[in-house]
Design a protein around this nucleic acid. Structure first.
Length: 525
RNA sequence: GGUCUGUUCAUCUAAGGGUUAGGAUUCAAGAUUUUCAUUCUUGCCAUAGGGGUUCGAAUCCCCUACAGACUACCA
């Protein structure tokens, strides 16, 4: 079966997370690539919740996933209702509802039974204890236990059991499962859109459980194949951790007789831990000094994990950096809007090898986006921070300040640190700078500057600059003797935008006051 | 252990048999900014190792090493 690029169906891809916790950035990237692929091909991007593991279900996880996608601008066009809930009732917009597998529960059993009827699966009645015993025995002998053709006949299964006995046990017992009858020795030839051809022999594979009587739920493999089929999924784009399951999925499609219309597959490389070992995991939390989650997450146990949103990242920057982790357009462009990405994305340019996340590059991306924002937009956000600090300031001034400092910041959260002196007098003065710039005559000169400023009218940057330069020229004062010390008075450190911008913005009275404070301070030693 | 996947500067990556192996981030130096940041310039730094195939290999093949994933009645 050839399913490379000749897939001419309407593109329909799905993101199918399991609500067992917050989505980490690897999951967001998988969602993003699915979304971009769908948009690139004018297809559908579907959200499906794979909650077939009742034991690991985490109550707030589904809401978190939806909110995270929304924050990123990755909006499914199927699976979510207008008010952002998982669609439960079928309508024109959501023809395959419900999109939560737990609510599709009654649907799967017939598919499991169909496979048994066709001879591709069987019932297994073994208790967990029995299997555990076999496993321990195997381990004791230094080999691994595989539930497959080598042991199948010794186990308590419907294979070779009289039909009426099977029927009776099916009715009487509540802990049996349906297992796939993995062929003993078959080469399965597969194709992956990113990795090319892959071949595996079935000999070492096991008879995977497909459906469990105990909770009447399918396992991932069955649910996934059935729902992808039912929802007419054309391409499965998922993480590399699924690659070892691909042959089972091929075999399942074949067993159902669906091979001709099975989706194309693309397995994305994993996102690696920044410090070398292993794939990035949810449990990494913020141990590495940067978030691994898009949004802040509070676990049921009360543990808090940082999120990109709360850390001050712009969603555009976050999406941009994620897109470039494992994909590139082949040009040297690095800054992309979501629309640009959607226009350019292709699976052929997805890299095969795992990518390590770089906190430095993440910061750089955010800085790029911060610089490109308008002063007004930044000022609106900065105003709420100022309000928290108890600072009253007019919008005009905040906008002007943002214009002056945005090139010096990586996050909006840096703004206060970079510009508090525009609003309140410096609380401390940098000792090193004082040592470097303060001379015996400095106080006297600064008092003259203060007097000079008092006479400048109107108090604009241009007029101030003009007046100060004229004064220095007239008295033959070298700029170095006064400018840095003046900055020290006003800012408290040797940093910040142009001195005349600062003077004009903080105003005549504040300048005078701050010069007085430091010159007095200096006189006292 | 077994199966599968991968391996180009510290990091993300480009180069789909022929380039001094390119770009970005980080780092370092210089210029600009009488400050800081930005910006600009320059620099440092890579084809895991070994065999083939070929006139020619980062690119194709084999072996080795290393890394990762998977190996649940989890997804």
């Amino acid at each position: 079966m050839n399913n490379t690029e000749n897939n001419t169906r309407k593109v329909r891809v799905r993101f199918a997370p399991s609500p067992t916790g917050p989505l980490h950035i690897g999951g967001v990237r998988t969602a993003l690539f699915n979304y971009l692929f769908a948009r690139r091909h004018g297809g559908d991007f579907i959200l499906r919740i794979e909650d077939t593991d009742a034991g690991r279900f985490v109550p707030d996880a589904e809401r978190y996933i939806i909110e995270a996608l929304k924050w990123c601008g990755i909006v499914p066009n199927e699976g979510l209702t207008a008010d952002g809930m998982v669609a439960e009732i079928a309508d024109a917009q959501h023809p395959y509802a419900p999109y939560r597998q737990s609510q599709r529960k009654p649907l799967y059993r017939q598919y499991a039974e169909e496979l048994v009827r066709k001879g591709h699966a069987y019932y297994a009645f073994d208790t967990a204890e029995t299997i555990d015993r076999y496993r321990k025995e195997a381990e004791a002998e230094g080999r691994s236990f595989t539930y497959n053709h080598t042991i199948r006949r010794q186990m308590d299964t419907s294979l070779g059991m009289p039909i009426d006995a099977v029927q009776r046990r099916l009715l009487m017992e509540t802990h049996w499962v349906v297992r796939f009858k993995m062929p003993e020795d078959r080469e399965v030839h597969m194709h992956d859109l990113i990795r090319g051809d892959i071949m595996v022999n079935t000999a070492t594979l096991d008879d995977k459980v497909l459906w469990k009587r105990a909770d009447e739920l399918p396992t991932y493999h069955l649910a996934n194949i059935v729902d992808d089929r039912l929802m007419a999924i054309s391409h499965v784009i998922r993480g590399e951790e699924w690659l070892p399951s691909l042959q089972l999925h091929y075999l399942l499609y074949e067993a159902f007789g669906w091979s001709e219309s099975q989706p194309d597959f693309a397995h994305l490389s994993l996102l690696l831990k920044p410090d070398g070992k292993g794939k990035l995991s949810k449990r990494d939390g913020d141990k590495h000094g940067f978030p691994v989650f898009p949004l802040r997450w509070v676990s049921p146990a009360g543990d808090i994990s940082r999120g990109y949103r709360e850390d001050g990242y712009f969603p555009e920057a976050f999406v941009n950096l994620l897109a470039l982790l494992g994909w590139n357009p082949g040009t040297e462009q690095e800054i992309f809007s979501l629309d640009e990405l959607a226009a350019l994305f292709s699976l052929e340019r997805v890299v095969k090898s795992g990518a390590r996340f770089s906190p430095d590059k993440a910061r750089w991306f955010n800085q790029q986006y911060l610089k490109s924002k308008s002063d007004v937009e930044l000022a609106e956000r900065y105003r709420s921070i100022l309000q928290e600090k108890g600072v009253e300031a007019g919008m005009e001034k905040i906008i002007a300040v943002c214009g002056l400092i945005k090139e010096r910041a990586t996050f909006i959260a840096d703004f206060w640190e970079l510009s508090s002196y525009f609003f309140v007098p410096p609380a401390t003065f940098d000792a090193k700078s004082i040592q470097k710039y303060w001379r015996p005559e400095t106080s006297d000169l600064l008092r003259q500057v203060a007097a000079l400023l008092a006479g400048v009218e109107p108090f604009t940057k241009e007029r101030i600059e003009q007046a100060v330069h004229a004064w220095m020229a007239e008295r033959n004062i070298p700029p170095g003797a006064v400018m840095n010390a003046l900055r020290l008075c006003l800012v408290g450190a040797a940093k910040g935008p142009g001195i005349f911008d600062i003077i004009a913005l903080i105003g005549k009275a504040a300048c005078e006051e701050r010069i007085k404070v430091l010159t007095k301070h200096a006189c006292e030693g």
